[in-house]
Simulated assay, not measured.
Amino acid sequence: MEDVLRPLYQERTSQQNTLGVISVEKREQITPFTEDFDTILLVIVSEAEEPVFVKHYLYENGKAALYVVTEAQLKEWLLLGNNRRFIEWLYHGKTLFDRNEYIHELKQEMREFPFYGRKMKMSIEFSKLIRRYTDGKAFFNSGHYLDAYNHVMHSLHHLARLAVIENGFYPEVTVWQQIKQIEPEIYKLYEELLTSDENLQKRLELLFLASEFLIHSRTESGAAHLLSILKEKEGWTFQELLHHTEIQHYAVDLGIMLEYLIEKSFIKVLAVKTKGQGIYHRYYQAK
């Protein structure tokens, strides 16, 4: 198969812009792994007009997809974890071309983890966890149990990914298989939510109680990136934090994350006078 598809990428390997080429074959038992294509060819380039360029091909009795992805786009996906299929392809794919061991070193970083931005990645997962957990609890308290269930499922997934990262591994698409080995107590919560004989209200009630401890025990590590930025100066306005280059990756959940950290005494609120009588600016400071 590799020989048949060689013409699709061979010309690119002679271009200095090409950093590496990876091939991914369809797994019989997991056809969605390659989006139902028989072969995926992933070409990583240093720069291009478009961050992602895709072409589909037919060959013999199969079909192939060629993805040309810039290094910057790939690094963003690795950091944010918002395109896990590509990350899986990179992790499990076969290297066909590797300029100056670029692919080898990238895979090594993923296996050894931490790679660049590990603390930031933990804060991204933690902020999503707090958002889902808080919203889920609000729905539960309002009696909207199905909506609460949906948010709790998502919050457990973010908790699992956070635990995987904290243990020095890169979270894969099959994160529950990872977490079963690494943090069985989180896996047990997930299992109980799905399979318990208790009614939905009781299941959620018990899960919120158990999750509270697990989330609190990971607050310091999950919020480490944000707390380290807060320590850079005496006090920050929300707007200053919102526009910080690194915090922008989880800015959408920054407000709820700050309130949680204030409630748990990781962050202190400073009241700074304004021109208005009895009105104060709200500044944030790491304790």
Results as ranks from 00 to 15, higher is better:
residue 250 Y to H: 01
residue 22 I to G: 00
residue 124 I to P: 00
residue 221 S to G: 07
residue 246 E to L: 00
residue 150 N to G: 06
residue 4 V to I: 14
residue 153 M to A: 12
residue 27 R to F: 07
residue 125 E to K: 07
residue 83 N to R: 14
residue 36 D to G: 09
residue 70 T to M: 03
residue 36 D to A: 11
residue 167 N to E: 13
residue 272 V to R: 05
residue 3 D to L: 03
residue 274 T to V: 06
residue 175 V to P: 01
residue 80 L to Y: 01
residue 286 A to H: 03
residue 38 D to G: 14
residue 83 N to I: 03
residue 92 H to N: 15
residue 44 I to R: 02
residue 25 E to V: 09
residue 275 K to I: 12
residue 11 E to N: 09
residue 23 S to L: 12
residue 205 E to P: 01
residue 40 I to T: 03
residue 271 A to T: 14
residue 195 T to N: 05
residue 19 L to S: 08
residue 274 T to Y: 03
residue 30 I to R: 09
residue 52 V to H: 04
residue 178 Q to Y: 08
residue 80 L to H: 02
residue 125 E to D: 08
residue 25 E to F: 07
residue 278 G to K: 12
residue 153 M to I: 14
residue 33 F to H: 10
residue 189 L to C: 11
residue 231 K to R: 15
residue 27 R to N: 14
residue 189 L to S: 07
residue 44 I to D: 06
residue 32 P to W: 08
residue 273 K to P: 12
residue 264 K to G: 06
residue 36 D to H: 14
residue 122 M to R: 01
residue 24 V to N: 01
residue 82 N to R: 14
residue 269 V to I: 11
residue 120 M to T: 00
residue 82 N to M: 03
residue 105 E to R: 15
residue 157 H to Y: 05
residue 178 Q to P: 07
residue 208 F to I: 07
residue 232 E to D: 13
residue 105 E to V: 13
residue 82 N to P: 06
residue 129 L to V: 12
residue 272 V to A: 09
residue 233 K to I: 02
residue 217 S to H: 08
residue 41 L to N: 03
residue 176 W to T: 12
residue 166 E to T: 15
residue 166 E to K: 15
residue 144 H to N: 14
residue 182 I to E: 04
residue 46 S to P: 00
residue 23 S to F: 06
residue 89 W to D: 10
residue 92 H to D: 15
residue 59 Y to C: 08
residue 83 N to C: 11
residue 40 I to A: 06
residue 63 K to A: 08
residue 89 W to T: 10
residue 41 L to Y: 05
residue 68 V to C: 10
residue 260 Y to L: 02
residue 265 S to H: 15
residue 73 Q to T: 10
residue 257 M to C: 13
residue 84 R to Y: 00
residue 28 E to F: 07
residue 48 A to K: 05
residue 223 A to Y: 02
residue 38 D to W: 04
residue 121 K to T: 13
residue 187 Y to H: 15
residue 142 S to W: 00
residue 277 Q to M: 11
residue 128 K to H: 13
residue 112 E to A: 10
residue 144 H to M: 13
residue 196 S to I: 10
residue 227 L to V: 12
residue 31 T to C: 03
residue 230 L to A: 01
residue 208 F to E: 07
residue 84 R to Q: 14
residue 73 Q to R: 15
residue 226 L to M: 07
residue 285 Q to N: 06
residue 9 Y to K: 03
residue 47 E to N: 13
residue 166 E to M: 09
residue 231 K to Q: 14
residue 117 G to L: 01
residue 225 H to T: 06
residue 260 Y to K: 08
residue 19 L to K: 05
residue 247 I to K: 00
residue 178 Q to S: 13
